[in-house]
Amino acid sequence: MIAEQRGRTIKNVLMCSALAFAALIAIIPLVSVFGYVFLRGFSSISVEFFTSMPRPVGETGGGMANALAGTGILIGLAGLVGIPWGLAAGIYLSEYVAAGEKGAGLGGAAIRFGIDMLASIPSIIVGLFVYVVVVMPFKHFSAWAGGLALGILMIPTVARTTEELLKMVPVHVREAGLALGLPRWKVIVYIVVKGSLRPISTGIVLAIARVSGETAPLLFTAFGNQYWSHDLSAPIASLPVQIYTYAVSPFDDWHRQAWAGALVLILFVSSLNLLTRVILKPSGRAGA
C-alpha cells in the first residue's frame, strides 16, 4: 500500500519535471530571438533612425522614416479592408449561421469553411492573387495593392474571433432584447456586438499584429520604395520589406539598419500583444 503510494509520488515528480522541461525548451526560441535582436539592433537605434530617410550606398547613417510611415499607411489600408469584412463575416456566422437561421445552413457552413481555408493559405499566395487582380491590370505596384493583401490576411482572424466572442453572449441576453420589442438587427448591433466590443477589439489588434510583420505578400504588391511616398497608387516602403532588402545587401551599415528595423518591428508587435491585455483588463466602469 505505502510502496504503491511512493511509486505514484515518484512518477508524479518525474512527469512534472519532464513537462516543465519541455515548456522551458518551448520558450527558448522566443527568448533567444528577442535577446539576439536586442543585442544587435539596440546600438543602431537613434532618433535619426526614426526621422531620416535612407542614405545612398556608401554614406553611413540615415534611417527608415519612409518604411515606418509606409507600414503605418499599409496597416491603415489593411484595416479598411479587413476590419469591416471580418466583423461582418463574424457577425453573420454567429448571429445567423450558428443561431440556426433558416436558409443560412449550407451557405453558412461553406463560408465558415472558406474562412478557415483562408486562414491557412500561405501569405505569399495572397500576395500573388493581389498581384494578378490589382497590380497587373493597373500595371504598377501600389500601396493600395499592399493594403488589400494585408487586409485579406486580416479577415480570418477578425471573423473567427468575432464569431467566437459573440457566441459567448448567452441566448437569454438576445431574448431579453427581443422581449423589449427591439428588432433583431438592433439587438445584434446595440446589445450583442456593442457589449462585446472590448474583446472584439483585441481580436482586431491581434490581426494587425499578425499582418504588420508580413513580408512575402508585400514583395509584389506594395513592392517597396527608397523614397518618401504617401501616394497610395505608387509603390510604398514598409518595415519588413526594408529589413529584407537591407539584410540581403552586402553593406555593413545596411545590416545594422536591418537589425534596428527588426528590433522596432518586434517591439511594435509585442506592444500590440500587450495592448490586448490592457484592453481586456476590467475597468469597473460601464460603457466601454
Binding site: V169, A176, G177, K194, G287
Partner: peptide, 10 residues
C-alpha cells in the same frame, strides 16, 4: 427571465 440578464457592459 429565469436568470437575471442585464445587458453586458451597459
Amino acid at each position: 427571465f429565469q436568470k437575471p440578464n442585464p445587458f453586458p457592459s451597459m
